[in-house]
């Protein structure tokens, strides 16, 4: 064959290939086309194989270049065809798979924390940031920790007022009526300085109504160091109240009496719901009664032994249910213990 013939043949193969390629509308056909025109067994390759037999170097070069150009062009066109076809198929798939994105998501029903848990965690977090370590104490207690060590002597009316539950175990074994028991237990275990809070369950023999339940929860705080003052107590409680209600609120203190603190005080804060104008939450008083507190009574420090001689401290206690009722506007304490999912689901 002459150069001319060979080049004509190449051109005709090219033309044939391009025509064939334009008819390939599946990926399989494209693959077949590639086998037919560009593989080792293709006509095109057959021609190139024979190239070696051409003696004339120039001719060989010219034909070679031509063949490569055609091959490149075919490959390029093939790649383009592949891309186009893939794009087409992808587009078809996408159109076919259209969904109604407004249908509801498939999901699990979310669980909910009990509101008291959230309040407890919140309180623990705030005091943790003030350096108070969380500790726990037993609910089944003794007369000693619940009363005697807390400077509440056997004849003290507080023992009547609190109407404590006693157990079948022994005459001195009772259900604690206050978390202040943890003060004594912590001081017995740890040398000063001591900075703790304890959140836990307490029991009082009271008829159930919207405000009272025989079990409820208290937060107890205690700070003992070499020189602790009433001013520091006020500062700590001010910081807590601001953090708990997430805004700056004025506090005011009123004298009160607890056998284990002296001086003792009851702390009110401005009602965050009405700016002291008076509303349902604060009973139209403009102020909310939040907690009881005071300076640790010297007799309490004496009762825990010589490690605490020469130290002073402050203590405070508050009701978890009460705080939750204020924060969430819950008006009946029994909601906390009915465990109605319509209630828990709101928190």
């Amino acid at each position: 064959m002459t150069d001319q013939e060979i080049s004509t043949q190449l051109q005709s193969i090219k033309k044939e290939a391009l025509t064939a390629l334009s008819h390939c509308d599946t990926l399989d056909l494209l693959e077949n086309w590639k086998q037919a025109y560009l593989s080792r067994k293709s006509k095109f390759n057959d021609i190139l194989k024979n190239l070696g037999k051409i003696g004339d170097v120039d001719t060989k070069k010219t034909i070679g270049e031509l063949a490569n150009t055609i091959k490149d062009e075919l490959l390029k066109t093939f790649d383009e065809a592949c891309t186009t076809l893939n794009a087409k198929f992808l587009n078809e798939q996408i159109q076919k798979e259209a969904i109604d994105v407004s249908l509801p998501g498939i999901s699990y029903k979310p669980g909910h924390y009990h509101p008291l848990s959230q309040i407890c965690q919140n309180i623990a977090q705030i005091f943790s940031s003030l350096g108070f370590e969380q500790v726990f104490g037993p609910e089944v207690e003794t007369n000693y920790y619940n009363f005697d060590a807390l400077n509440i002597d056997a004849d003290h009316p507080a023992r009547d007022e609190q109407d404590t539950f006693y157990t079948s175990i022994a005459p001195h074994v009772l259900l604690r009526s206050q978390t202040s028991t943890v003060q004594i237990r912590s001081m017995e275990k740890t040398r000063p300085p001591l900075k703790i809070i304890s959140i836990g369950r307490v029991y009082r023999n009271e008829e159930i109504n919207a405000r009272k339940y025989p079990i409820f929860h208290q937060v107890e705080g205690l700070y003992v160091n070499s020189k602790v003052s009433f001013g520091q107590l006020k500062w700590t409680l001010q910081k807590f109240i601001n953090a708990f209600f997430e805004r700056d609120l004025k506090i005011r203190l009123r004298p009160d009496f607890f056998p284990f603190t002296e001086p003792s005080a009851e702390v009110d804060c401005e009602c965050p719901f009405c700016d002291t104008k008076g509303c349902k939450t604060c009973g139209h008083k403009g102020w909310l009664e939040i907690l009881g507190c005071g300076m640790v009574h010297p007799n309490v420090l004496k009762n825990v032994g010589e490690n605490y001689q020469g130290y002073s401290g402050f203590a405070f206690g508050m009701g978890v249910e009460r705080l939750a009722m204020i924060k969430y506007g819950i008006y009946d304490i029994r909601y906390f213990y009915n465990n109605d999912l319509r209630f828990i689901g709101q928190f």
């Binding site: 699990y108 029903k109 979310p110 669980g111 909910h112 924390y113 009990h114 008291l116 848990s117 609910e139 539950f165 369950r201 029991y203 025989p214 079990i215 906390f336 213990y337 465990n339 999912l341 828990i344 689901g345």
Partner: peptide, 14 residues
């Protein structure tokens, strides 16, 4: 537990 879809309850210990 809350993450697994459980609702937390607080019941009377008495």
């Amino acid at each position: 537990m809350v993450g697994f879809g459980f609702n937390e309850i607080w019941t009377s210990s008495l």
